[in-house]
Write a protein that binds this DNA or RNA. Structure first.
Length: 680
DNA sequence: TGGGTCACGGTTTTT
DNA sequence: CCGTGACCCA
């Protein structure tokens, strides 16, 4: 049966599929049949008699994992024990369940999300924004820098504080048996590094490893992969260096650029035949991406015909831009185009506003893909906090979240008192409330009435825990009548939240029906790694950021905001090559029609801004208007001011004034001239 | 405790 | 311009 699938491949795809032992890099351009190739390869390996349980396929998203699993299994005509095909983080989670005790940490850990992480950091007392500290800790972990060495190498005031917080944060996490997303990769790495026997055993077990979207791996994932390949070199990675757009969260393109050097003797297969887009579209994508210097040579060849020309228009303002899109879409819909085949893409969410307004006015049904994630919604997190308390009532973090939700009249003052009291007694908040020994002391501390309220809260948790014993189905049936979250949100008129709670409870019931033996704590860690709820509103026009559109395809794509400052975006950390890759991703989403739109002025942050066209339009040969980049504005020794780095002096003028080398208090940085202003 | 007011800052995002 | 967070007062 597998033979028939092999016949559906082109010769490059077939070469990749039939490569079995030794490192393999599949450079898969956009729309070149990447998923088809690796799923066929996996099925092929299994058809050769390789035990599915000896394979490991790692992806970045759950969506990619489930799509691949489905496609690979469909190719096999016999029932198999399903191969391990999951996200990096899921793999880490499974691994830690088995081995975390090796690091003397509790195997009954709880996975927290980035929101929880920020809150914990904030509670540790910080003067810099908790999001920056959180990001700092994340980059340390992803570059395998321990808290101690972070502290030693801390230079700025920020780094000094951040590294101290990093130390405290790690202590807190261990004390409370918590694990963050980065830990799901870092702790397995540490275990594999420290315990040779586990590393060998694991590597032998996963004798055939496949990694999807390899261009998005960071240093930690790279090191982890090397350890997993300790006993063999059967690693197949698939990726496209031109589609690396997650540098801002640690993705390191050099991993794919230097794969050959790391995995000696690697075979490289390029998939350059594009089955998705017309030649006109690919020409634009190819010509723009060719301006990047750090890339592996690769050129998409269109299998489809020439197609329609790429359309590019610059409007007076964003309203004219949106009105034009609405008009075009209405025309398309009238001619029978399926709205699900149309997408509007933008670089930053702020640009969606005028689109949404116009679509609503013109009654075009649309769905905003990738807004607030389901499990990050406040009401869902409240429910999750109750569930965690159900598993472990001494989870202070969760307790603090919901002790006043629904409103019970317990505020910050009471909580602060409770917390300091618990700390002095070397115990957790829940225990101090329920311990009869502390009753009179606490009662006089917070007042009799408040103490009664606290007691009531513990009774609620108790009720939940009791209900848990009568089985998950009944538990989920009764959960909200015990907590009362729905009626709380109902009274304050937030009906959306009520229906979200209903959706969540419905989903959980479904889950426990299919997995009756699953424990509540397993369920909690499982869903911590899942972001989306089920897709809804099928036949609608999609609007989303370019990042969200990666991996998707549409017949007709409108890209808005091709203006200098918006796309490429203009900030201190802008990496122009990554912006260009983003353009490449956007353009290659389109199958038949691509619109590259812009506006001469836009309203943002309360003021109207004028801007020249994006340099990408120039590179694509789609505009004659002059593009930004004022030359000769700065000379050596000019004093300049930067939003983040403060004052600095120009050391050198590069690229005809487009770029500057600036000394900020001893630290020399290279920045685009647009990001600084003259300080007189 | 919690409602009200003011200042501030404001990419991209998965797990 | 608009959402978030800090802070003040009833």
């Amino acid at each position: 049966m597998i033979k028939q699938y092999l016949q559906n491949l082109n010769s490059e795809q077939l070469t990749a599929v039939e490569h079995i032992d030794g490192p393999l890099l599949i450079l898969a351009g956009a729309g070149s049949g990447k998923t088809k190739t690796i799923t066929t390869r996996l099925a092929y390996l299994i058809s050769l008699g390789i035990d599915p349980s000896n394979t490991l396929t790692l992806t970045f998203t759950n969506k990619a994992a489930s799509e691949m699993r489905q496609r690979a299994i469909a190719m096999l005509d016999f029932n198999i024990y399903p191969p391990l095909l999951c996200t990096f983080h899921k793999f880490g989670l499974l691994f830690l369940k088995f081995h975390l005790a090796k690091l003397n940490r509790s195997p009954n850990f709880v996975v927290i999300d980035s929101d929880d992480k920020k809150k914990i950091i904030k509670n540790l007392g910080v003067s810099f924004p908790s999001s920056s500290i959180s990001h700092y800790i994340s980059s340390c972990k992803n570059s395998i820098i321990s808290p101690d060495s972070a502290k030693t190498s801390a230079n700025s005031e920020f780094e000094k504080e951040a590294s101290e917080i990093y130390i405290k944060y790690e202590e807190y996490m261990i004390k409370n048996s918590l694990v963050d997303f980065d830990d799901l990769l870092l702790l397995p790495y540490k275990i594999l590094l420290d315990f040779d026997d586990i590393a060998s055993e694991t590597s032998k077990k996963y004798a055939y490893i496949t990694v999807d979207e390899y261009q998005d791996t960071n240093q930690l994932q790279f090191e982890l992969l090397k350890l997993l390949c300790k006993e063999h070199s059967n690693i197949c990675v698939v990726g496209d260096d031109d589609q690396s757009i997650y540098g801002f969260r640690g993705a390191d393109v050099t991993n794919i650029l230097s794969f050959e050097k790391t995995f000696y003797g690697a075979k490289i297969v390029k998939l350059e035949s594009n089955y998705r887009s017309t030649k006109q579209i690919l020409d634009i994508a190819n010509i723009v991406i060719a301006n990047n210097t750090d890339r592996l040579d690769k050129q998409l060849k269109s299998i489809k015909g020439n197609g329609a020309a790429v359309s590019s228009t610059r409007f007076e303002d964003e309203r004219a831009e949106s009105a034009y899109i609405a008009k075009e879409i209405k025309k398309l819909l009238k001619n029978g185009t399926n709205p699900a085949d149309i997408a509007v893409l933008f670089r930053i969410n702020a640009l969606s506003r005028s689109i949404e307004e116009e679509f609503t006015k013109e009654r075009i049904a649309f769905k905003f893909v990738g807004g607030t994630m389901f499990y990050e919604r406040a009401e869902i997190k409240d429910l999750l906090a109750y569930l965690r308390l159900c598993v472990n009532e001494n989870d202070d973090f969760s307790l603090k979240r919901v002790i006043n939700r629904p409103k019970r009249g317990i505020g910050k003052t009471t909580l602060d008192k409770l917390e300091t009291f618990a700390t002095t007694q070397k115990t957790q908040i829940y225990d101090t409330i329920s311990n009869p020994l502390f009753e009179s002391q606490l009662s006089s501390m917070v007042g009799k009435k408040t103490f009664g309220l606290l007691k009531e809260f513990t009774v609620t948790i108790q009720k939940l825990q009791d209900k848990k014993l009568s089985g998950m189905i009944e538990f989920w049936h009764e959960i909200d009548s015990i907590i009362g979250l729905k009626s709380f949100f109902n009274t304050i008129g937030e009906d959306d939240r009520v229906s979200n709670i209903d959706e969540f409870i419905g989903m959980a019931k479904e889950y426990f029906k299919t997995n009756p033996e699953c424990e509540l704590d397993e369920f909690l860690n499982e869903i911590a790694l899942v972001s989306e709820s089920e897709e809804q509103n099928y036949g609608d026009v999609s609007i989303m950021t370019i990042h969200s559109a990666k991996g998707l395809e549409f017949e007709i794509v409108f890209v808005v905001g091709l203006d200098d400052g918006f796309f490429p975006i203009n900030t201190a950390t802008t990496n122009i090559e990554e912006e260009r890759r983003l353009f490449y991703v956007a353009a290659t989403r389109a199958k038949t029609n691509l619109y590259l739109l812009g506006a001469k002025s836009r309203f943002l942050h309360g003021e109207r801004k004028h801007m020249p066209p994006s340099r990408f339009l120039k590179e694509a040969g789609l505009t004659d208007e002059p593009i930004a980049i004022g030359g000769g504005k700065y000379t050596k020794n000019d004093l300049v001011k930067h939003k983040i780095f403060g004052f600095g002096r120009v050391v050198e003028v590069l690229r005809k004034g487009e770029k500057l080398k600036i000394n900020f208090q001893g630290q020399v940085r290279e920045l685009l001239a647009d990001f600084v202003e003259k300080a007189v």
